[in-house]
Design a binder for these strands. Structure first.
Lengths: 226, 226
DNA sequence: ACCTGAACACCGTTCAAGT
DNA sequence: ACCTGAACACCGTTCAAGT
């Protein structure tokens, strides 16, 4: 009858649990990078023997999937169906940007591991719902969802620097302009200043606007009511 | 005077070189997956001691960057500036899709490693060039490039299944429909058939069309003449 | 300049033993 | 049911030695 606190021994180490293991992993990754993640490090962090982890997680791969899942669970997907579908679509895509900002160093794991919880279906459901509300037919709605997802993921990949690939090095290597022959890369050289200046928010919204605008202009298969 | 074949000893093992090492790595990855890649495996593949690799590559990270570079080098970027810019833009984005198909299992490495060769600048230069030809001003051209890149990368991420995340599991888990409560995911359930049917080419072109169409409708800062 | 084997510190995971 | 230490096979990389 004394409630659920049945003992007052000083700070009894909390029980080991999959959730706690995943959280420790996420913390470690954000602090030291994905390469620093190892079963042994996680165990140490939790003050526990390595093999104890295997009581809650079958292997390292499963732990990584747990990390991906945890990040995706952080998507803030509140929605107001009474809003115009364009607004709802923007909110959805922006949610990805937000979460990528919250867990920058986990992104490479999120992008390379599947999520087999229903959690992973929430964004899909949301996108399909608003395409439906916009009056698109089924097959078109599916394609719209995929286009939005592609942009959401790709924009993050670019911005978070997960992909340091391609144009990003233009920014980070601004000092080595001299070595770029203007003959081979005339436009890159000419626009070096714009390329180096950073306004990721505007860049992101620009691309998002393009997509929404194009969707807006698309012929609808059905009436647009609801 | 006997040309460049100076000896006829039976197949003298070819010299070890960075290029050969990278190629072996790419082959190994495509055959057995990125997880199977190790310095030791690569060395074995080349019939060489592990430490020999370190004469041509400073460490594993550098080898992975070499792999990314090799894949990006495979982008087929032939271009005809006399074509309308829309056509050129489509060709550019499609080149990414092509290369992702050629090296599916290397993609996760390409997406997570920087490329500091000028090779990585070719797509950027191309995108900026065609935006210029379309009559857009500098800052807008840069944003257009970024939007195209984001879509090119994101679409690949989705399709290649690098991201098994999100809607992809809808397809792979079609058998578990029953377990999905239609209450929480009504649209996903209703469109399960469309979601499971695979036509990645059309999906890809749909999103690409959206972007090009939107760009077409955008006001130009300059005349459109070349 | 390039190759090599031995060694070191670190992995993920199996197994057998404990409670 | 959960925890643990020892052991195994495998890593990346340093070092000292060879040519």
């Amino acid at each position: 009858m004394n409630g659920d606190v049945t003992s007052d021994t000083p700070a009894p180490r909390p029980v080991l649990t999959r959730a706690r293991i995943v959280q420790a992993a996420v913390g470690l990754i954000e602090r030291e990078g994905a390469d620093a993640l190892s079963m042994r490090r996680v165990a140490a962090e939790l003050g526990v023997a390595v093999m104890s982890l295997y009581n809650h997680v079958p292997n390292k791969g499963a732990l990584l999937e747990g990390v991906a899942e945890h990040v995706i669970a952080g998507l803030e997907l509140e929605d107001d169906p009474s809003e115009p579908w364009q607004t709802r679509a923007r909110a959805l895509v922006r949610a990805f940007r937000k979460v990528a900002h919250d867990y920058p160093r986990c992104m490479t794991i999120v992008l390379t591991h599947k999520i087999d919880t229903q959690l992973g279906l929430r964004p899909a459901e949301r996108a399909l719902a608003l395409a439906d509300a916009a009056g698109f037919d089924g097959p078109t709605s599916v394609r719209i969802m995929r286009a939005l997802m592609a942009y959401a993921l790709g924009a993050q990949l670019r911005e978070t620097g997960v992909v340091k690939t391609l144009d990003n090095l233009v920014e980070t290597q601004a000092e080595s302009w001299a070595k770029l022959d203007a003959a081979e890369f005339p436009h890159v050289v000419a626009l070096s200043e714009e390329l180096a200046s950073h306004d990721p928010e505007t860049d992101f919204e620009f691309g998002l606007d393009l997509l929404i605008t194009a969707l807006d202009a698309l012929p609808r298969g059905r009436s647009q009511s609801r």
